[in-house]
């Protein structure tokens, strides 16, 4: 078992554990913090796959910007109490069972695919580097890139319009 494999298993366990904590924590603030941990674990996976650009963006955008936004909202609305009234027990159970079934079915379906012989290249390969992605992004994908800026603008306008007091 080399260092890469150890890292892979470690990060996977961290990711799954943190994800479970996200949905089981009573306090929303803890949920946010556990989610940030999950994102860090996933970024670790990105680095392991040598997708450095995405790893950094993931931390900046997700762990940084988005989760801070979540925290802000929770704090501002004073939701950091374990106030959530319990859902119907049976409905909760049904939800968990349904989710579990989905996992089971998907695993069963994907277990025997031909793709399982394939390997994902870890530690090496330079396609995840900023230089390579930037070249591609500003040549082949320049139009979607520009359109996404319009999307941001409209999302911003939308957020302002929805969020403002009448």
């Amino acid at each position: 078992m080399n260092i890469t494999q150890i890292l892979f298993w470690f990060l996977s366990v961290v990711a799954i554990f943190s994800a479970l904590m996200v949905i089981t924590s009573k306090n929303p603030v803890y949920s946010v913090l556990w989610l940030i941990a999950t994102f860090f674990a996933i970024s670790g996976h990105y680095i392991l796959l040598n997708a450095q650009f995405l790893a950094i963006v993931n931390i900046i955008v997700y762990a940084g910007a988005i989760m801070v936004l979540f925290l802000f909202v929770i704090m501002l609305m004073n939701l950091n109490k374990e106030t959530e009234p319990q859902k119907n027990r049976w409905l909760k159970m049904a939800g968990a069972v349904a989710g579990g079934c989905l996992l089971l079915v998907l695993v069963a379906a994907l277990k025997d695919t031909d793709i399982k012989q394939q390997q994902a290249l870890v530690n090496e390969g330079n396609i995840g580097l900023i230089k390579n992605l930037g070249k591609e992004l500003f040549t082949k994908y320049v139009v979607p890139f520009e359109i996404s800026s319009i999307l941001f603008l409209s999302a911003m306008v939308g957020a302002v319009v929805i969020g403002k007091k009448e």
Binding site: T4, Q5, F8, S12, A15, I16, A19, L20, V22, I23, T38, H45, E84, P85, K87, K92, A94, G95, A96, A98, G99, G100, L102, L103, L106, V107, L110, I115, K116, Q118, Q119, A120, V122
Partner: peptide
């Protein structure tokens, strides 16, 4: 790394997300 591992990891995270959506209010 075998691609299988990544698939199962992603499936696990995805299903945890779904369970969360279904169980929390």
């Amino acid at each position: 790394m075998p691609i299988n591992y990544y698939i199962f990891l992603a499936l696990a995270l995805f299903s945890i997300g779904i369970v969360g959506v279904l169980t929390r209010r």
